[in-house]
Design a binder for these strands. Structure first.
Lengths: 223, 223
DNA sequence: TTTATCTGATCCAATATTGAGCCATTGATA
DNA sequence: TATCAATGGCTCAATATTGGATCAGATAAA
């Protein structure tokens, strides 16, 4: 049995960390416990942990403990918490990345039935007479395109965006930006997206969606 | 056995909540009961419950009790739950949309200090000798690029992706795909991204990042 | 030998837990 | 209506845990 040195212990610790051992709440056991578990003195364990600290695997807090710097599952809720402060401008920027891609995916992957659902949402939105109804079916149109993108992660990101868009700052903005003229513009732009999807043309679908989102951004943010 | 601290208890509580334990009335037992059940002081249990309150899992009412905030199941927490099942393939697809954009934003928006931080992460990753250290600074390289993209929403989406990448299916995959040769390829690809950032060249930064992600995808998913 | 490292021990400072008590609100009961 | 038990909100002093730091000796390798 080779003598245990601090650097060996450090790599052993890394192994246990990357095996997901302490990922639960991101806290690793106290130095004193680790030392006795590995059968070394606390000083040695301290040096070992220092290696992890040096390469940023871990941060230490007096009186609290030693914590993994890698984010842990429990912090997902914190992330979505912070997301609630997302500015409309930032989100529109990302929508312009994701939605054209979603449209492109949909053009290649969607089933006929799914495309029918998209068309249906578009139809109702066009025929709607009041702002809340239009708002709802407009959102549904976009949602159904994501729904047939065949990428679960993309769909969930869009769900996040939908939720965020239902919050206070957006509501005001949408109310301000609504007008009959704009609604008809949105409808014809949606039509172009829908046509491209029905033609199974990813490239055009992507472009049409991007063009539409540029319009929305202009209206929403007033640029 | 790790000493029970408040945050541990919080995660234990979350586990019991998500296992449907107290779903019936949407009410969880009184602090005093929980404290004695977990064998901690009420103050500690109060702190634990406060964690749940902070991330919105629970609401407290003086004199009435503590209740689950279940009436909003279609919201964020549900999204988070579904996201945990994201497949690596789906996520890689989205990374290839977002990260080139992040690199492009970074090329135009990053401060000199931020770019220095990116370079630093790159340097340490290149010099690292073992897989966990490389892994960590590789992730940090990407993270720091997002950090200077100046888009809060984009940053938070990346945080979500980081968390998901720390879960089980990814671990196995990364372990399988790691090799000295691949590491050096990653390093030279990172170098090209970094160079483009330092040249303040959004277009090249985006392309270099996309090329890198294609490599990663090939290695990870074996295509 | 010299050098580096580990050991075992002790003290310190920051933080957390404990145990106890008191208050305000609530809802049920007399 | 008045009372009362249950519950969360809050404070406080004592104790325990934990990382930070240092030192003298033991051990092993060069």
């Amino acid at each position: 049995m080779p003598k245990l040195v601090a650097s060996d212990i450090a790599t052993a610790l890394k192994k246990r960390i990357s095996s997901g051992e302490w990922i639960e709440n991101g806290r690793i056991p106290p130095e004193r416990d680790l030392a006795s578990e590995f059968g070394v003195a606390r000083n040695t364990m301290r040096r070992a942990v220092s290696f992890l600290e040096d390469d940023g695997t871990v941060v230490r807090h007096v009186g609290r403990g030693t914590f993994l710097t890698a984010p842990n599952p429990a912090s997902m809720t914190a992330v979505v918490g912070r997301m609630e402060g997302t500015s409309p401008a930032d989100m529109m920027e990302i929508r312009q990345l994701l939605e054209p891609a979603a449209a492109s995916f949909a053009a290649t992957n969607a089933s006929a039935m799914e495309l029918n659902a998209v068309r249906e949402a578009h139809r109702i939105a066009c025929e709607s007479q009041d702002m809340p109804t239009f708002e709802h079916w407009d959102a549904e149109f976009h949602h159904r395109i994501f729904a047939c993108s065949r990428n679960e992660f993309l769909k969930e990101i869009h769900n996040l965006m939908r939720i965020l868009r239902n919050q206070a700052p957006w509501f005001e903005m949408k109310k301000r930006s609504f007008s009959e003229e704009r609604r008809s513009i949105y409808c014809s732009e949606h039509q172009m997206v829908l046509d491209a999807l029905l033609r199974r043309d990813p490239e055009s679908a992507s472009q049409a969606m991007l063009a539409h989102l540029k319009t929305v951004e202009r209206n929403l943010l007033g640029r």
